[in-house]
Design a protein around this nucleic acid. Structure first.
Lengths: 219, 219
DNA sequence: CGTTAGCTTGAGGCCTATCAATCATAGTGG
DNA sequence: CCACTATGATTGATAGGCCTCAAGCTAACG
């Protein structure tokens, strides 16, 4: 692992990840904190397309998001390990490489899953689905226990993920709390009854519980 | 090219692509016709997540869509070339392999682009954006000329792509025609003024005009 | 202690869904 | 050749989910 490691970035809260030359030659392993990747339209609307969690492996083509309204930003203090792609391929880091290949499949599955949410679920089900997704992904890397996890997203950011207004997200969260499905308070999410949450979200475990290989062991 | 070719499927109109054993070991090149990949929810709602156009390269993990509401279906008569992944890698088909790698990036870009649409655009802009996307993708493979192309999708399918009801898509299409932005009649789409369509769609050419390498030359 | 970011609440209105019916077109079989 | 059927497109009416604007609230922070 060490031989491929170029450096470790420490990114402050709410800071944007700078695009660097040669970043297309690197893989990035999120060690700590969350990242959101978003796209801003000309009319000011913003849509978050990816939520990167600890243990996630991702590659950013440098030219891909320059001056096009794309942005990758940290939610809270974050550490990112930068790995050289070529070394990962050549050395005995085959496991990492295969995990990278797999990560792209997982990425596509999450994107499709969220596409279904935005297209066919109302705000309540979308919110429930997002929380369920985050819970399952975090559990795989040991960051969610007994129906509870820490979520650094603001309500405004959740709105930008789900394609609704911040005002409406606020009301939906209150409704879900009244129903005893989700309690979201001070960056802490609690799920009293996962099965009921799945029902509210039409969460399909076979389809939506995407398999992310845990890479915390490598960190 | 020939040595990697396993077979060519001819799929009839509105037929589902059957999942076969070992299909994860194959790449699929759409030679003729369109494909839609959709996901059906437990409540009956359907969301189309991918539109596969001639020249597109795609791989389908077999187990990925079994009994989970996923479906890949032909819109009209279709021919699909099946290639062996391993042969593609080993032989001098490196160009194909790189194109496959690239196709996955393109796929992710399209998914994100559509996510932005569903999250942050109204039905009118979504429709305009979809038409612009299809036009640019088809033009790369020589299937769109002078602001016009053939589109085998029904209004119902367009609705399932854009996450709106068929009734509403019908009204939006009429509105766009009245505005002189899109004329859609008998599977033929005409774009009188591409620049105005881009404005209506907040289409960002740098971001949304995804680069798909044309593979028609290989067919 | 003023400032700021984020959360909360209310009111009004638009966009879009839903239900229901009609129309157009093509294919089918008697 | 003509019902008969099926699929898709069209139109109208009603309802509801969600947005927008606007204001007040809270907590953290320099």
């Amino acid at each position: 692992m060490i031989e491929a490691l170029v450096e470790v970035w420490s990114v402050g809260s709410n800071q944007s990840i700078p695009v660097r030359p040669r970043s297309h030659a690197h893989l990035h392993l999120l060690v700590e904190g969350w990242l959101v990747r978003s796209q801003t339209l000309s009319d000011g609307g913003r849509q978050i397309t990816d939520i990167v969690l600890p243990g996630d492996l991702c590659g950013w083509a440098a030219a891909e998001f320059q001056g096009t309204g794309e942005d990758i930003r940290a939610c809270g203090p974050t550490r990112i390990a930068v790995l050289r792609k070529d070394v990962v391929i050549e050395r005995d880091l085959f496991a990492v490489w295969r995990s990278w290949e797999r990560a792209r499949d997982v990425e596509a599955r999450i994107l499709r899953s969220r596409l279904v949410s935005l297209g066919r679920r109302n705000a309540r089900a979308r919110t429930a689905h997002l929380v369920a997704e985050l819970y399952h992904r975090l559990r795989r890397v040991g960051l969610a226990d007994s129906g509870s996890f820490r979520c650094p997203l603001t309500q405004g950011q959740i709105a930008d993920v789900l394609g609704v207004s911040p005002v409406h997200i606020n009301r939906v969260l209150q409704e879900l709390r009244r129903e005893g499905l989700i309690a979201f308070n001070k960056q802490q999410v609690m799920i009293p009854d996962l099965a009921r949450l799945h029902v509210a979200a039409s969460f399909d475990e076979g389809l939506d519980d995407v398999g992310v290989e845990a890479f915390c062991s490598l960190i």
